[in-house]
């Protein structure tokens, strides 16, 4: 009961907060009207963007500008991390980082994934953390918001989708930076360290000298949560007491995880001029989110099977393994956080996912497989748009009418691009997991055998492909094969699900507007909501159920047989 009350308060409160912020985000990303102050700001953004800042871009130019900017960020950040031992802001004299780990880390932060095969407090200098990783946390999140704004403009029927470099500045300076400043201040007040001093040294009661890592954690934490980045300043992420000290910082983090992805839905609805459609999409996302929370909490109230053979361990209150008790309730940092962080492609960790009961552990995987129940900032709504295209097409076929979305006909070309987007995600996860499960690349890195071991491999590729970044753990993943494979998956499946939907929007924008008639499929009523929900579940189940059966479901059935 506590868990569901907490979930309702966090999710409901954030949904309410997202209403005015979604309105503000629309104003920030898609200014309309000749407000004089805003016009000055826009001129400044265009000037900063240089000669390219004044042109209006079609989908292809927008996509190329996005890729070129992200490639440049990849190179600059790569140089900072690779050369950190020679650069300033390194008070603890952090050494060189191994080459494949640099590739994985920079690919991870460029792609808004923040999968970490390293521990920040062990490997990264403050310069690497701030100028490379935190900088990428801002611009990668801004890339997602910019891409959604461009997509929405295309769907609104505008032949030009905006200017990427201008949109990037709007998202960074008007949306993410002000929010991050507020949240970082609140986190610092809540006890999160914010200092450029090196590690503290203390003498324990036993007289042992202890080195306590610290740093500019509050700044890092704020954008990591708001930008659905999720990468921890410390290795244990938000289970570390300096990254999440209290019940209140825990609650604030969960709000921040959900906030901007929720605002993205409202922004989309306003730009396409269909706020009622956005309300329906929001409701479908909420249903899926609460469904996953309920299942995860339900299965987590059962004792962990890991202690089943130990009669002296009482587990009347459910599975406490891998939970942080300072957050007041084991469910707040356990199943609730794990579902929120994986539904939103955030990936910060508030409990040990490896310790969740098998069916509770399945829910984070479902979140990453669907990747559209709010999803990443901007990109979650883009993923949902792909499901909408599939749903519209299926609904049109079922009733024998030409499928239409927002007064534009959805034809075979758009459908092919949508299916390719869905299949790319599945392909990266399933092929990657199959190859690593069948070879020493994956097998030699496992901490567990059997279905749980398979879950560890499956989770890692799911996390990489969904640009989530959380770890199931129990996997020795800092090896060359893991670093290269997940690095490539993160980069490819960051941009493919942005490029192809932008192409769909560009294609739809060029089509003649069709008049609404009695036969037009309404995309803002409950029938379409049910159709969309069914499509998401059907596509997800058809694609990933066999893999789920081999991992968490098999493990659950094995435990049920034993007990």
């Amino acid at each position: 009961m506590d868990a569901l009350l907490l979930a309702t308060l966090i999710v409901g409160g954030t949904a309410l907060l997202s209403l005015p912020l979604g309105r503000y985000m629309t104003w920030a990303m898609d200014p309309t009207g000749p407000a004089p102050r805003r016009a000055g700001l826009e001129r400044l953004f265009a000037r900063v963007a240089g000669p390219l800042g004044h042109e209006q871009q079609g989908w292809k130019q927008y996509a190329i500008a996005m890729l070129a900017f992200n490639a440049l960020m990849f190179v600059v950040s790569f140089a900072f991390v690779a050369l950190q031992q020679h650069l300033p802001l390194n008070p603890d004299a952090k050494g060189a980082v191994e080459a494949s780990l640099v590739f994985n880390t920079v690919a991870s932060f460029t792609s808004n994934t923040n999968l970490q095969h390293y521990s920040g407090e062990v490997s990264m200098s403050y310069l690497s953390q701030l100028l490379s990783l935190m900088w990428l946390q801002f611009v990668s999140a801004a890339t997602g918001i910019a891409a959604l704004a461009a997509l929405a403009r295309g769907l609104a029927g505008r032949p030009e989708m905006g200017n990427f470099l201008v949109d990037l500045q709007r998202a960074t300076l008007l949306v993410l930076l002000p929010l991050a400043l507020i949240v970082a201040t609140l986190m610092a007040l809540g006890g999160v360290p914010m200092t450029l001093s090196g590690a503290a040294s203390a003498t324990t009661l036993e007289g042992v000298q202890q080195v306590i890592a610290r740093g500019p954690v509050a700044a890092f934490l704020a954008i990591k949560q708001l930008g659905t980045n999720g990468g921890g300043f410390f290795g244990p992420n938000c289970t570390h007491p300096f990254e999440n000290p209290t019940f209140w910082t825990n609650g604030l983090s969960m709000i921040c995880i959900l906030l901007v992805p929720m605002c993205s839905v409202w922004m989309f609805g306003r730009i396409v001029g269909r706020p009622r459609h956005a309300r329906l999409v929001f409701a479908v996302m909420l249903v899926l989110l609460f469904g996953k929370i309920a299942v995860a909490v339900w299965f987590e109230t059962a004792p962990t099977q890991a202690f089943a053979a130990l009669p002296e361990v009482e587990q009347v209150a459910g599975n406490f393994e891998g939970k942080e008790m300072r957050f007041g309730t084991p469910y707040g940092s356990g199943p609730l956080w794990s579902v929120l962080t994986t539904c939103t492609s955030n990936g910060s960790v508030g409990a040990m996912h490896d310790s969740l009961n098998p069916m509770a552990g399945l829910m984070p995987m479902v979140g990453m497989w669907l990747n559209a129940t709010f999803g990443g900032v901007g990109v979650g709504m883009i993923n949902m748009f792909v499901y909408i295209v599939v749903a519209v097409f299926l609904a049109g076929m079922m009733v024998g009418r030409t499928p239409e979305y927002l007064n534009r006909r959805v034809e075979a070309r758009e459908m092919k691009l949508a299916v390719l987007t869905v299949l790319a995600h599945a392909l990266f996860i399933l092929v990657g997991a199959a190859v690593f499960a069948a070879t020493p690349w994956g097998r030699d890195t496992l901490a567990n055998w059997g279905p749980h071991g398979f879950s560890e491999i499956l989770y890692e590729f799911s996390s990489a492909s969904a640009n989530n970044g959380s770890g199931f753990e129990g996997l020795g993943d800092n090896t060359v094969p893991w670093n290269v494979a997940t690095g490539l998956v993160m980069l490819l499946n960051r941009y493919v699900p942005i490029l192809l939907p932008l192409a769909i929007a560009g294609s739809l924008a060029r089509k003649r507007r069709t008049a609404e008639s009695a036969g037009t499929l309404g995309v803002q009523d409950a029938t379409f909501g049910a159709m969309l929900l069914g499509t998401i579940l059907l596509v997800g189940a058809l694609t990933f159920l066999p893999a789920a059966v081999l991992g968490p479901i098999a493990e659950h059935l094995l435990f049920a047989q034993q007990s």
Binding site: L67, A99, F103, R413, L491, V496, L499
Partner: peptide, 30 residues
């Protein structure tokens, strides 16, 4: 040296994504 190889790998991935963008655009124009 190995660092340069991984840097090139990342840039090759971005180049492949740009090629994909061009290919989709050409396919749409057909």
């Amino acid at each position: 040296m190995l660092h340069l190889f991984y840097l090139a790998l990342g840039l090759a991935t971005f180049a492949a994504l740009m090629a994909l963008t061009n290919a989709v655009d050409r396919w749409e124009q057909d």
